[in-house]
Structure formats: structure tokens, C-alpha cells
Amino acid sequence: MSHKHFIAAGFLGLFSAASQAQDLTVTLTNLTQGIHFTPVIAASHDMNAAIFHVAETASAELTALAEGGSIADMSILLSNAGADVIENPASGLLAAAQMTSFNLTNSSGNDYLSVAAMMLPTNDGFVGLDSWKIPSEAGTYTVYLNAYDAGTEANNELVLTGSGAPGTLGIPAAPGGDAGSNGTGVSDAQSNTNIHIHRGVLGDTDASAGASDLDSRVHRWLNPVAKLTVVVQ
């Protein structure tokens, strides 16, 4: 089934030089139990633009998104690349098990869909979709999204006010109000400095001490962490 899908995508990619604008209705669902998504950014773009690629270094724009939830610079990057950009469809945080929907009309040639949002509370974890080929055929399509680590900040798992600024170590906030404090820090070094699948958080069960400020019973997840439903009109 998926094999045939890829064959079809490859075949069309070879022969359809210019695509037409399409109307898309996109719904993003947070599938986690205890993680918030910061303001979501979504864009349709050509194959030369992207929010991120795995196994590559994060851009400054992605670093700002993944460490602090700021999508302003990423929005500029995408707009300058000719992308159709949707900012913050949930009007703020997207809590666990919540969904947000938006309409997106992609310009001719913007055949790829990308999505990203920071995951809180993490140091530099984000949910992402990189350059999903928008089907030319009308229908409803479902894509599951994974959690990535931007590789730009050590996962010390300490909730520290003001640490959302790129380069400032720490988790800027735990929106659920369920994190601890006074942890000693899980890790102060980043092994893998390229974008990779997030290994998950360690956490602990001590709210006022221990290595981590995160609660290992609450702030955990397994992939996939989000579901994206795309209706192509």
C-alpha cells in the first residue's frame, strides 16, 4: 500500500512540472498525555525550502523555535523562500490531546508541507514534519509526526525562567504546572549536535530535588506525538 503510494508520488514528481494551487484543510492533534505544543508554524513550500532536515544542523531559526517556542524568525525565513505560511493556528499552546485546524491554500509550485512546534517541557524538543509531498489527488490523508531533538542544547531538564532564549540552558516553562524545582541537572553536554529523534526525557519522582525538574510519570512520550490530517479539496 505505502509502496504503491511512493511509486505514484515518484511517478508524478517526474512528469508534473507545474502543479496548481490547492485548498487544504489541516488538523493537528497533540497525541501526548503530558506535553504542550508551543505556537505551531505550518507552511507549504517548494523543494528548496524547509523548516528542518534530520541528520543536519539546526538553523538559527529552528533553534529559536525549539529552545524557546519562537516562530517569528522561522516565519520570515519561510516567507522569504516564497512559502505559504500559517502561524499559530491554536492561538497559543496546544495542550495534550487537543487539536487545532486551519485552512491553507498552497501557491503553484509549493508542493511540500512542513510543520513544527516546540514541545514543553523539554530543552529543545520539537514535533515536526519535514517536506511531506502534498498529494495532487483530492482526499483525506493522515500523517503521524515524531518528536525531534534540535541538537542545539543539552537536555539538563531544569525549568529556568528566561531560558527560552537560544543558547540559554534550561526549559523555559512547564505549562501544566506539574514540574518540580531545584534539580541538579541531568546532562550538561549534548552528544548529538544534529537534528535527531528525541530519546525522551529522564525525569524523576522528586519534585524538590533529584537530577531532573521533570516528572518521569508525566512528562514522557513515545512516537508518534502528533497526528496530522490533511484534506485536499
Binding site: A147, S187, I197, R199, L202, L222, N223
Partner: peptide, 9 residues
């Protein structure tokens, strides 16, 4: 903790 992984790898 560094050696943990989640799918896909």
C-alpha cells in the same frame, strides 16, 4: 541517559 532511543532510529 544519552544512550536511550525512540523509534524511528
Amino acid at each position: 541517559f544519552e544512550h536511550k532511543f525512540d523509534n524511528p532510529v
